[in-house]
Nucleic acid binder design. Structure first.
Lengths: 334, 334
DNA sequence: TTGTATGCGTTATCAC
DNA sequence: GTGATAACGCATACAA
C-alpha cells in the first residue's frame, strides 16, 4: 500500500542507500549476509524501483519507441506484438506510436519519444523515406528501420523482407500456372517495400520475355476509394486478356476478389491471383488466396538485435539486412 | 545536437530556472517580455523537456498502461489504436502490454507498469476476472476495465459493449430468418463478454419458447485445435436439424464457414450464421458474414474519459457503462 | 565491505 | 515579477 523508496529499504535493513543500490543492481561488492538482509526487506515490503529516478540518474529510460503507420493492419500488429514481447523479456518497455501515415503526427510522436528519452527507435514502414532530422536539436537517438528506406543509411540499419524476391516468385508462379498477361495491382503511394515488389514483378516479366508497359501491366487502385470497382472494371475491359494479377498486398487482393466476383470473372479459372502478407483472412476467402509470407518472427528478432547492438556500439551502423520470404499457395493461383 | 536543460535556457535568456519553468508551464506570473525572451531561446535551441525529471518531481508520468490479451486480434488492435490516438492528443503516452492471456506475464507487466509509474491503467478483456491485488505493496493505480469483469467493482469502472443485447438480437434475427434449431458456437474458456453473449442467446431462445439445453444448443470449439473440424462434424451429425449458428466471435464463425463448406452444407441455405465483432474480413468470405458490430470509437472515448476522471477524482468509481452494439446483416443470415 | 555526499532536471516554496 | 533553493529517488565517486 505504501510506496517505499530505496531510503526506506536502507533504514529497514540497517544499511546505507548505497549498499541497497549495490545489492539491487548486483554490482560493487557486499557480503552475502547484507545481501540476504536487504533482499528480505525488499521482498517483505514489495519495494519497487522508481524508474523515473533511475532514468534521470542514468540517462537511460529502458524503453523503446515503435513508429508504425497502422496497428490494425495485420502485418504491422503481428511484428509489433512480437517485438514488444521480446523487448519486455529483455527488460524494456515499448511505446507504440500510430502515425496513420500522417507526417505532422509522426513528428509530434518523435518529439514526444525524445522527451521521454527512449533509448532507441524502431521505425516500421511508412510512405516516405525516414529522415529523423526534423529538428536541429535532436538527440541522435539510435534507430533502425523496417521496410522503410532511411534517408541516410550511415547512421542506422535497414531491415527488410526480400520483397523483390517475393514479388518475383509470385509472378513466376502466375506464369508457370499459365498466365500470359499478368498485371500488378498497387496503390499510388509507394512505400519502399511497394517499390521493391513492383520491381520484382517487372523483372519476372522481363526474364520471361514479356514486355512491360505501365499502361498495360499496372493497375493503380485505392482500396478506400468509392471508385475502386469502377477502376478495376475499366482496366479489365480495356485489356480483356488479362489473366493474372499480382496484388501488392492482401488487402488489395481481397478487394479485387470482390470486384471480380461482381463481374462474374472466375478466380482462378479466368484470372489467377497472388497477394502479399499471408494475412489470416486469406484462408477464409473464396477462393482462398495465395500469398507471399513474410517472416515476422525473424524480422522482430533481427530488429531488436540490431537496435540493441547499435545502442551499445553507435558506430556499428550502415548495413542492411534482408529477410527471406516464402510463397504460400492456395486456390487463387492454381 | 546538444542536449539543453532548463538551466541552459535560463542562462541563455538571462533569467532564473524558476522563471523558465514558469514560462514553460504557463503558471505563476511573469512579464510578457520575459515570456517572449524565454520562448525565443527555447525555439532556437530546440529545448525539450526531460520527462524523467518532471515525472520524478511531480510523481506523475504522463503515461497510461494498456493491458490487452492479443493485439493481433482486430477488435483489440482497433480499440487500442483509438485509445492510443486520443491519449496522445491529450499529452499522454501509452505503454501497450500483450499478455497473451498468460497470468504470470500479466503480473510481470503490472509490476513493470507500476515501476514506470503509469498514471492509470486500461485493462481490456482476458479470461479471468481482473484483480490487481497480486501484491501487498501495490500503489493503487487507478484503472478501468473494458470487457473484463473486475473482482472489486468499487474501486474501478467497468465498461462493456452490450454483448447481451448483441447476442439477443443476433439470435432473434436467426429466428426471424426462419431458423428452428439455432445453436451457439463458443470456446471453452469464457471471458466476461463471452458469458454475456451466451446469456443473450439463451434468453432469445426462451423468449421464443425454444427450450435450451447445453448438449443440444451449445457447440464448444477451439479455433486453434486440430480437432476443430471433427468437433463440428460430430455436433452436426448428432443434431441433423441444426439450421442456425450464432458464433460468439468472427474468428469462430470463419472457421465454421470453412468446415461447413467441407461438409457441403450451404450457408445460408441450410444453415444461417451470425458472428460477433464485424471484422473487416467479414466482407471477403463467401458468403459474406453477418455480425454484431461493437462501437470501438465510443468504447475508446468512454474508457479514457472514465480513467482520466477517476485519476483526478479517486472516489468517483463504482459504476459501469454499457455501450450499445448494432447488427450488420450480410449474406450468411438471409 | 560499507557509508557519505553529490548531482541528474524539474517543480514548488519561499523570500525579495 | 523574479530568484535561490530544497526535494523527488537513484547511482556512483570517493572515503573510510
Amino acid at each position: 500500500m505504501k510506496k517505499y523508496s530505496i531510503k526506506d529499504i536502507a533504514t529497514l535493513s540497517g544499511v546505507s542507500v548505497a549498499t541497497v543500490s549495490r545489492v539491487i543492481n548486483d554490482n560493487g561488492r557486499f557480503s552475502e549476509e547484507t545481501r540476504n538482509k536487504v533482499l528480505k526487506v525488499i521482498e517483505e515490503t514489495g519495494y519497487q524501483m522508481n524508474y523515473s529516478a533511475k532514468s534521470l540518474r542514468m540517462n537511460k529510460s529502458f524503453s523503446i519507441g515503435i513508429v508504425v503507420p497502422d496497428i490494425s493492419n495485420y502485418f504491422f500488429s503481428d511484428v509489433v506484438q512480437k517485438i514488444e514481447e521480446i523487448l519486455f523479456a529483455k527488460g524494456y518497455s515499448t511505446i507504440i506510436c500510430n502515425t496513420a501515415r500522417n507526417n505532422k503526427k509522426e513528428i509530434a510522436y518523435l518529439r514526444m519519444l525524445e522527451s521521454k528519452g527512449v533509448d532507441g527507435l524502431i521505425v516500421i514502414s511508412g510512405a516516405d523515406e525516414f529522415g529523423f532530422d526534423y529538428s536541429h536539436a535532436h538527440k541522435n537517438i539510435p534507430y533502425i528501420c523496417i521496410d522503410r528506406e532511411p534517408k541516410n543509411r550511415d547512421n542506422t540499419i535497414f531491415i527488410s523482407s526480400n520483397h523483390y524476391q517475393g514479388a518475383f516468385e509470385a509472378t513466376e508462379e502466375l506464369l508457370a500456372a499459365g498466365c500470359k498477361y499478368p498485371i500488378v495491382a498497387m496503390h499510388k503511394r509507394k512505400s519502399s517495400s511497394g517499390k521493391e515488389r513492383c520491381r520484382g514483378f517487372m523483372d519476372a516479366l522481363q526474364k520471361h520475355s514479356i514486355c512491360f508497359s505501365h499502361a498495360r501491366n499496372v493497375l493503380t487502385v485505392d482500396v478506400k476509394s468509392k471508385d475502386f470497382h469502377a477502376d478495376v472494371k475499366k482496366m479489365l475491359t480495356l485489356h480483356k486478356n488479362i489473366d493474372g494479377i499480382f496484388a501488392i498486398n492482401d488487402s488489395i487482393a481481397m478487394e479485387l476478389l470482390q470486384s471480380l466476383k461482381k463481374m462474374n470473372i472466375s478466380v482462378p479459372k479466368d484470372i489467377k491471383m497472388i497477394g502479399f502478407d499471408d494475412t489470416p483472412q486469406d484462408c477464409y476467402s473464396s477462393p482462398t488466396l495465395s500469398s507471399v509470407k513474410q517472416d515476422t518472427t525473424m524480422i522482430a528478432h533481427t530488429a531488436i538485435d540490431s537496435l540493441l547492438n547499435i545502442i551499445s556500439n553507435p558506430d556499428d551502423t550502415g548495413n542492411s539486412i534482408i529477410i527471406p520470404v516464402s510463397l504460400v499457395l492456395r486456390e487463387s493461383s492454381t
